Amino acid sequence: MLIVRSLLFNVAFYANLVLWLILLIPGALVPRRQFMELVKMWARTSVWLLRVIAGTKVVITGQEKIPAGGALVAAKHQSFLETFALLPLLDDPTYILKRELMWIPFFGWYLAKARCVPIDRKAGSLALVQMTARAKEEAQHGRQIIIFPEGTRRPPGAPPAYKYGVAHLYQNLGFPCVPIAMNSGLYWPRRQFIRRPGTVRIEVQDPIAPGLAREEFFKLVQERIETASNRLLEEGRAELGMGPDSRPETSLSKV
C-alpha cells in the first residue's frame, strides 16, 4: 500500500501543480499580495493531498513566536515539502533561491511576480551584495525572507553544512531571525517517490533578535535548528519504527 499511495499522491500532486500553474495565469495580473494568497491556496491544497492520499499530516507548532513585519526565516531543508508548506505559515513570505529557477517557463515568471530574491552562485561576493540589497528591500516592506542556510536538501541526520550567507543576511538586514526545525526528510525523502504516512513536524523556534556578532549568531542559529530537528527526528523515527541511525535514502524510485 505504501507504494500505491505514494504513486497516487505523486500523480495528484503534479497534476495539481500543473492545474495551478494554469489557474495562476490571470492571477499574474492582480497585485502581488493577492497573488501570494493564491499561491498559498496551492500550498494548502498540496498539503491536503499529502494527508488524504499518502496519510502524511503536517503539524506546525510555535507560530505565535513569529514576529510581525519583516524577518529573516532560517529553515532546515530536508525535502521538497517545506518549499511550499511554509508559505501559509507566514504573512508575506518570499524566498532566497538560485537564479536558474527564474528561467523556468511559468514557474519562473510566478517567482518574479512574487518578488523572490535570486542569487547568482557564480558571481561570488557580488552575489551576496546583490542578494542582500534585494532581501533588505523586501524585508523593509514587512516581508519574511525565507532562506535554507545549508543551501540544499540534506538527508535526515546528516552532519550540518551551514553556509555563511545566512549570517551575512542577518547582519545586514537588521531584522530578527526565526529558526525553523523539522523532520520532513523522514516522510518525504529527497530524490525518492516514497511518501511515508505519519506526522511531519515543523517547529518554529524562539526568534533571534538583531545585533549579535556574526560568529555568535552563526553558532546560535545552527544550535537552535539542529537541536530541535534532531529531537523531532527521534520522534519521527519512533513513529516509523526506524532505528536511531537509519536514513530513508535507499528506497525504490527517485524523483
Rank of each mutant, 00 (worst) to 15 (best):
K57F: 00
G243Q: 04
W103D: 15
A139K: 07
Y110M: 15
A133G: 02
I146S: 00
S229N: 03
G108L: 09
A15S: 13
F106G: 01
R247P: 03
Y14F: 15
M131D: 01
L89N: 02
A228N: 08
I180M: 06
M1W: 13
S79K: 05
W103T: 15
P93F: 01
R231Q: 11
L72D: 03
K57N: 13
Y110N: 10
A238Q: 10
G108T: 04
E64S: 08
G211I: 07
V117N: 02
P210W: 09
M1D: 10
K98N: 05
K65W: 02
P156K: 06
Q144Y: 08
G157L: 10
A139N: 04
A167Y: 14
R115E: 14
S6G: 15
N172K: 12
V73R: 03
A85H: 01
I202N: 12
S46Y: 03
A68N: 09
W188I: 07
R153I: 06
I180P: 05
F217H: 13
L49M: 12
S6K: 14
R51Y: 14
L173G: 08
R121T: 03
H168P: 01
R237T: 04
A75Q: 02
M36Q: 15
Q130R: 10
L128E: 06
A167C: 07
S246D: 15
E150G: 07
G241N: 06
M131E: 02
G70H: 07
H77G: 04
R224W: 11
P197W: 00
D245C: 04
E216T: 15
N183W: 04
G243S: 11
L89F: 06
I202T: 05
A43Q: 06
